[in-house]
């Protein structure tokens, strides 16, 4: 195959992918009271990874981020299920979440919510699943 010129894409990707990942993390934390959350954040992070994948190739991505995405999916599911199942210990219905307001340094008064833990699970599952799908389709070519 003729070698294609992807210099522009590669250079832009180096900058853009970090911006996308930063924004996805912002979306993730914005989640509870404003639009955003684990699912959308995860999807956006996965989009950044897919951009890297397009600009470079699977091997390079493996070298930068040596994750097993199937394990990541499993870990995310486990976190999500265990967070939800935590309510079993307090004998309240499954999925019941707890929250409270804390005075944190720098951030001031912040509401901390157990739903964030659940969302971290969702975030990981979404990245894991999306990357597994992309890799499965990509590898067989």
């Amino acid at each position: 195959m003729k070698k294609t010129n992807d210099l522009i894409l590669q250079t832009v990707t180096k900058v853009i992918s970090f911006i996308i990942i930063l924004f996805s993390i912002h979306l993730f934390f914005a989640g509870h009271y404003t639009p955003g959350g684990g699912f959308i954040g995860g999807l956006m992070t996965a989009a950044a990874l897919v951009l890297l994948l397009l600009a470079y190739d699977i091997k390079t991505l493996d070298k930068i981020l040596p994750f097993d995405y199937k394990l990541m999916t499993a870990a995310g599911l486990l976190i999500a299920v265990l967070t939800a199942a935590g309510s079993l210990l307090f004998n309240v219905p499954f999925f019941t979440h707890a929250y409270d307001y804390f005075d944190l340094p720098l951030l001031g008064e912040t509401s901390l919510h157990t739903a964030v833990l659940f969302d971290i699970g969702v975030y990981m599952v979404v990245i894991g699943i999306t990357m597994t799908i992309i890799q499965t389709i990509g590898e067989s070519e």
Binding site: F39, I129, I133, T136, I137, S140
Partner: peptide, 20 residues
């Protein structure tokens, strides 16, 4: 709709790999 989209996204991905 979000739930249904996610499900159909997963199933379509599976279907594409299966077809391949």
């Amino acid at each position: 709709v979000l739930t249904a989209i996610v499900i159909s996204f997963g199933v379509t991905a599976f279907f594409l790999v299966l077809a391949y």
